[in-house]
Structures are given as structure tokens and as C-alpha cells.
């Protein structure tokens, strides 16, 4: 049986597809010098409606499915009473959820008022599914005034900085990302080091001499020396120390103060460090 003409063309189509993808990768790899590329802007422009849309569709399907499960097997009076109980329970859950949301918004508002620079609150709408990066997507972008390298915080502490911006959404690199590095200092001794992400839940505080006293639970603050973050913002707490010596550095593990694995709302500071004057109430 001879292969058809269509089958003969398949390898050509295959190679064309691979070449197109290689070109795409090449464009993105070349835009690595921390610049916002046109292709990334375009990508983010389509990313937002896709994520919003899929969230809407899947939550809708989930709602229909749970509604079906909740009502299945309910009969007569039991059905009415059970439905009433369900309704009350759902109302209670909604109220609890709203109370929790109100608490978060209140904290965020308090933070927004205390940072002393223009800022915008954003909701986390996505997270990177790739194990090699720790990034989130937020629902505010260029239109809201978000720009590259602006700082993202929560009332608990620093989250990271903006590394990609679209018209209505932005990508935030978390401080736990493997490529992230933040100038940091120990709150007690004021010794400077670098907080490095490890693509895991915790970070590492590097370049701290073994001659300095470090205790578990000690706060780690931004030093401001790298020029991206203002000085004195809370990054996390020392969770583990392998003490060094005169010749060896301390091995310090840091637990981020912000709950990076369950972020819901964040605050983007719409100014860069020379213009940011963090008030004492925000400094820890």
C-alpha cells in the first residue's frame, strides 16, 4: 500500500512546526536580558482572557457537579430539611469566606495606606505549572500602572517583583524562584547577605560570615543594596542554621514571611526604590 500524498507531506509539516517553535524559543531566549519583549507582551495579552475564561468555565462546571451531588438521594421531607440545612451551611460558609476576605482586604488596605507610595491591589489568577520556576500571574497590568521590576508585597511580607507585564495582567517572580536574588540583612546583627530562591518553599541566606551570631526565628529584612527593593521590608525568618566558623560561612535557611503557597491578594508598589519611602509602620 503506497503512502498518500498527504502522508508524504507530514515530515515537511513536522519540520516546519519544529522550526517555528525553535524560532519562538530563540526569540524568548534572546529577550532574557531582563527586557520586556514584544512577544511576551503579546503572550500576556492573550494569557489573561484565557485564564479568566478557563477559571469561569471550570468553576461553573464544578458548581453544577456539586449541585448534582448535593441533591442526589434526597427524598420528600428529608429532601426539604436537608436542603434547608445545606442552604444554611452554605450561607454560613459564604459568610465565613466573606469575613476572611474582608479581613484580608482590611489588612491590604492598611498596608496600602501605610506604604506611602501609589500602589494597586491585585488578585492572583494563576501559578506557574513548571517545577523549575516559582511565578504567579496577577490580574493587574499596564493599564493599572504596573511596570517591570515593581515590588509585590502582602501584609505578611515581600512576595517578589514583576518580571513580565501585559495590558491586564502581570507575571510576578517570587522570592523563592531559583533565579531570584534579594539583598538581605539579619535584623539583629544588621549583617548583609543575599537571599536566594531555591525553587522550593524556602530560601537560602547566602554570604553570611561564620563569625556572626545567628539565631533561629531571627527576622530577615531587605537591605536595599541591590537597588530593587527598599530597605527594611520583612522577607522572612531564619528557620534553620548550620553554623559556620571563621573560615566557613553560615548555611542559613529562611522561611518566607508571606505565605507564598496560598497567595490570594497582593499589593503592587507603583514606584521604584529611590522613590519609595517606606514608613516606620511597614518596617519591621
Amino acid at each position: 500500500m503506497k503512502p498518500t500524498e498527504s502522508q508524504n507531506r507530514a515530515p515537511i509539516v513536522f519540520i516546519a512546526l519544529l522550526v517555528a517553535q525553535l524560532l519562538t524559543m530563540s526569540l524568548h531566549a534572546r529577550a532574557q536580558a531582563q527586557q520586556q519583549s514584544l512577544s511576551r507582551t503579546a503572550l500576556l495579552a492573550v494569557l489573561y482572557p484565557l485564564q479568566k475564561g478557563t477559571a469561569w468555565v471550570t468553576s461553573g462546571i464544578g458548581g453544577v457537579w456539586y449541585g448534582y451531588l448535593n441533591l442526589r438521594g434526597v427524598r420528600g421531607e428529608n429532601q426539604r430539611l436537608q436542603a434547608e440545612i445545606n442552604r444554611l451551611q452554605q450561607e454560613r460558609m459564604l459568610v465565613q469566606e466573606e469575613v476572611a476576605a474582608a479581613r484580608r482586604y482590611r489588612e491590604l488596605l492598611k498596608l496600602k495606606e501605610s506604604v506611602g507610595v501609589p500602589s494597586v491591589a491585585a488578585t492572583v489568577i494563576g501559578r506557574d505549572g513548571n517545577p523549575w520556576y516559582q511565578q504567579i500571574v496577577i490580574d493587574q497590568g499596564l493599564i493599572a500602572g504596573v511596570r517591570l521590576y515593581q515590588i509585590v508585597i502582602t501584609p505578611q511580607g515581600v512576595v517578589g517583583r514583576v518580571v513580565g507585564v501585559g495590558p491586564t495582567c502581570a507575571i510576578v517572580q517570587l522570592i523563592t524562584d531559583g533565579t531570584s536574588g534579594v539583598g538581605a540583612m539579619l535584623s539583629d546583627s544588621r549583617v548583609n547577605g543575599e537571599l536566594k530562591g531555591r525553587n522550593g518553599p524556602q530560601c537560602q541566606l547566602a554570604s553570611i560570615t561564620g563569625l556572626v551570631n545567628v539565631r533561629e526565628g531571627e527576622a530577615i529584612l531587605t537591605s536595599g543594596l541591590e537597588g530593587w527593593y527598599p530597605k527594611g521590608m520583612l522577607l522572612g525568618y531564619v528557620s534553620q542554621v548550620q553554623l559556620g566558623s571563621g573560615a566557613a560561612l553560615h548555611q542559613i535557611t529562611v522561611q518566607p514571611a508571606a505565605q507564598l503557597d496560598r497567595l490570594e491578594e497582593v499589593l503592587v508598589l507603583l514606584a521604584k526604590p529611590p522613590d519609595i519611602q517606606i514608613t516606620e509602620s511597614v518596617k519591621k
Binding site: Q21, L22, D128, Q135, I171
Partner: peptide, 22 residues
């Protein structure tokens, strides 16, 4: 690449899957 992989190498996921598929 679009929805999840806000990774730094756009097209990598697509390339590997196309290759494997073919």
C-alpha cells in the same frame, strides 16, 4: 506554554510534545 508555563522559554513545551507526538 500559554496558560501554565509562564516559563522563560516559550515554545519548549510545544516543541517536546510535537516531537513526541510525531
Amino acid at each position: 506554554d500559554l496558560i501554565q508555563g509562564v516559563s522563560k522559554l516559550m515554545g519548549a513545551e510545544s516543541f517536546t510534545k510535537t516531537f513526541i507526538g510525531y
